[in-house]
Design a protein around this nucleic acid. Structure first.
Length: 739
DNA sequence: AGGTTAAATCTTTTT
DNA sequence: GATTTAACCT
């Protein structure tokens, strides 16, 4: 245990004030890069140093990665054994844990499965089938979002039409689907992400459970408080009401999850909720150089609904922000690769560079370019691994073992790999289950009684026996890793995917089988880190991973991430791509000033991740969803203090924001195809038109121009990219290009 | 009727 | 660009 002086030695007065505050509510308004993580870590250390039991402390972070990081730092600080560490976790993980331990108090089966968005969509699809209503124009995913929003506002199915403004024809069917969806969750013994929070709240409203939990946790810290939603707010109040020891840290200017129900007012009204709260402002920025901060300040000051505040620079002026104007997304990707090469020449490490984008889909071209230029990169997409077919398959097996009521998982694996239990057989099983009021799994175990199964009967019996055998292996003492390996090998999954790979003779490094092995590796790691952890805990952990969790700080490569995923991180150099209207701010905002302010905060978050170098790129044309369109630079570029930027052509910013017409590139004179040009060959095509080419398939014409006696044009093909073609004769003819 | 192919439609961010 | 729907062909 280290001495008090050591804990406080290198802190500024406000930091010290936050760290040494022990009892009663505390609000730390910490600007970007103001040493917030350090303050939280030290405060946890200080509390323990003052004799508070580590087990009485809960610190809530926004991601699991942040939780691990903080845990590590606290451990380092106090040189503690892992056994007596404070709880550091995300809201969702913490709630899941409470529910696993105390859930029986509110009648919850504690082996519940956690349903992710994919499972949820499946359930909604089924719920629509049952209620016989799929509202037109709504996808299961959309309905899922709607239900999630309703749940976070604690609106019950029967309150949908009265508490939400919806057209009547939608309200009633949505309410019906929502109701059925909730029933089905119950039947599956499953909780969705929202349920984790809601049931935890139920738990805290239960006198017996609350008393135990209150006795256990005496000090609550919540980071990124500006991004908590209403239910999390209620949880926070409940969790701290007995001691009033609540410490919230955050920054209203970094609230970027409003679309997910986060309420910025939680942090703005903290002092109303806790009138005796001590408030500490951390305004010195120790991360970024002055030019970057001045620019960030000038940007964010455009938000009208905001408390005036400034980030104060501590570091030197540094380098101005570089703006890069590019022709299209290909040139942008080239610029990016050049910037990275420059940084390498300068002596920077690749892992100190981040490439940020508003939307994931824009990374496709970037990835291609980085691969051809042989620049190693990592994409912050932790969840995508768990979306893969083979991973969902193996996880479904494990889920059924832990929770046989999990019908979504069971339906997935009953005929994967194919074992002669087809659609009719599955329907027969479901019929039998419904008639006898038993679960699908129980029906499978009673297959010998179901004559309607016909030829499939023996297959079903064999499947049931196999699953039961797996279940017997799953004892509290069995190693998770062994079960995962055993199931992968004996269920037939491995051979199934091996065969598929052979048939398609694909030899990519990320084969399904390799992914299965990687998953086994994850189970192994889990078992090493947590020898007492059960399969249930393993599955819980895997379903609550986030994109940011996948970021690896060890390997030396460029990190590609969305601006949202960048929250809480910092890099020596940040390169922002596609700073264009309709991308950031996203077209989804459509003039809604509050939404645009959130987009501005998002841009602010992205900028303030940079320590020394900040590059902002935009293109004049961009191919999105197959069609090639002109774009305009983001209004946020115009809002940056001109003194802090370099390479900006102001005239480009004053161009008309958007037209529906094709803008003719000044460098390659184009001819409007509709304008008759008498003595010249006729052109039957025009920009934006969809065309078919025998060799390249479908594509969209980008521009047309006259070259000698022929009309030439570039066409963006869905497969194969840009091609130059002769357009005045049909069919389209390819010409040689330098591309 | 079933299976293939063309056209139309929808595009954010994530625990 | 991906996915879903409509249309077409055998």
């Amino acid at each position: 245990m280290i001495a008090e002086e050591e804990l406080l030695a290198d802190l500024t007065p406000p930091q010290r004030q936050a760290v040494t505050h022990i009892d009663g509510p505390l609000l730390v308004l910490a600007g970007a890069g103001s040493g917030k993580t350090r303050v939280i870590t030290r405060r946890v250390g200080y509390l323990i140093q003052q004799g508070i039991s580590p087990g009485a402390i809960v610190a809530i972070t926004f991601t699991n990665k942040a939780a691990d990081e903080m845990s590590r730092r606290v451990g380092e600080l106090l040189e503690m054994k892992s056994g007596s560490m404070p709880m550091v976790s995300t809201f969702h993980s913490f709630c899941a844990l409470m529910l696993r331990i105390y859930g029986t108090a509110i009648g919850l089966e504690t082996n519940f499965t956690i349903f992710d968005t994919g499972d949820t969509a499946k359930l909604i699809r089924n719920a629509c089938g049952d209620t016989g209503a799929l509202p037109t124009g709504l996808t299961p995913a959309k309905i899922g979002e709607f239900i999630s929003r309703a749940k976070m506002q604690m609106i019950k199915p029967e309150e949908v039409s009265s508490r939400l403004e919806l057209p009547q024809f939608q309200a009633s069917s949505l309410a019906r689907i929502y109701k059925r969806y909730e029933e089905m969750l119950l039947e599956n013994r499953a909780l969705d992400f929202d349920d984790l929070l809601l049931k935890a709240l139920d738990l805290l409203n239960n006198d017996a459970a609350r008393e135990v939990i209150h006795r256990r946790y005496q000090y609550l810290l919540i980071d990124e408080y500006q991004d908590t939603n209403h239910v999390q707010y209620l949880l926070a109040k409940r969790l701290s009401e007995h001691t009033r020891n609540i410490c919230a840290t955050g920054d209203p200017d970094q609230s970027i999850y409003g679309w997910r129900g986060a309420e910025i007012n939680n942090i703005l009204d903290f002092e109303k909720d806790f009138p005796d709260a001590a408030v500490v402002f951390l305004e010195n920025n120790y991360r970024s150089t002055e030019y970057i901060l001045t620019a960030a300040n000038s940007l964010i000051s455009n938000n009208k609904l905001r408390k005036e505040k400034k980030l104060l620079a501590v570091l030197e002026k540094g380098v101005k922000i570089q703006i890069h104007s590019c022709d299209d997304e290909n040139e942008e990707a080239k610029t990016l690769a050049d910037l990275i090469n420059q940084a390498q020449k300068r002596g920077s490490k690749l892992k100190d560079i981040a490439v940020m984008c508003r939307i994931n889909s824009l990374f496709r071209i970037v990835e291609q370019t980085l691969r051809t230029r042989e620049i190693p990169y990592q994409l912050a997409r932790g969840v995508s691994f768990f979306q893969r077919r083979e991973i969902r398959d193996i996880m479904s097996y494990l889920r059924v073992l832990v929770n046989p009521a999990d019908q979504v998982a069971l339906e997935r694996i009953v005929n994967t790999p194919t074992r002669g239990i087809g659609a009719q057989a599955q329907a027969a099983l479901k019929d039998f289950a419904q008639q006898n009021q038993i679960s699908l799994y129980q029906a499978i175990l009673q297959a010998e009684k179901i004559m309607t199964l016909g030829k499939s009967q023996t297959n079903v019996i064999r499947f049931g026996e196999m699953m039961e055998q797996f279940r017997q292996r799953l004892t509290p003492t069995s190693a998770t890793e062994d079960i995962v390996r055993h199931v992968t090998d004996t269920s037939g999954l491995r051979t199934y995917y091996k065969q598929i790979a052979q048939k398609e003779h694909r030899t990519d490094e990320l084969s399904p089988e390799a992914n299965l092995d990687e998953f086994i590796g994850m189970a192994q790691k889990f078992h090493q880190e947590l020898p007492d952890g059960s399969m249930m805990d393993f599955l819980s952990q895997q379903s609550l991973v986030s994109d940011t969790d996948a970021i690896n700080n060890q390997t030396d490569c460029v990190t590609l991430l969305t601006m949202h995923a960048a929250k809480g991180l910092e890099f020596e150099q940040v390169i922002i791509l596609a700073a264009e209207e309709d991308i950031i701010p996203h077209m989804f905002c459509s003039g809604d000033e509050r939404k645009i302010e959130e987009e501005r905060r998002l841009f602010f978050v992205a900028m303030t991740r940079a320590k020394k170098f900040l590059n902002i790129c935009y293109a004049h044309h961009r191919a999105t969803r197959g069609s090639y369109r002109p774009t305009a630079p983001s209004r946020f570029i115009k809002e940056l203090d001109p003194q802090t930027v370099e390479g900006l052509d102001v005239t480009e910013l004053s161009k008309p924001v958007r037209t529906n017409q094709f803008i003719i590139s000044p460098r390659k004179p184009a001819v409007e195809a509709s304008v008759p040009t008498p003595a010249k060959p006729r052109c039957q095509y025009r920009p934006g038109q969809r065309v078919y080419h025998e060799k390249f398939g479908y594509g969209v014409i980008q521009e047309i121009y006259l070259s000698g006696a022929n009309y030439l044009g570039t066409v963006n093909f869905h497969t194969g990219g840009l091609k130059k073609l002769v357009l005045n004769i049909a069919p389209l003819q390819t010409v040689k290009t330098d591309q």
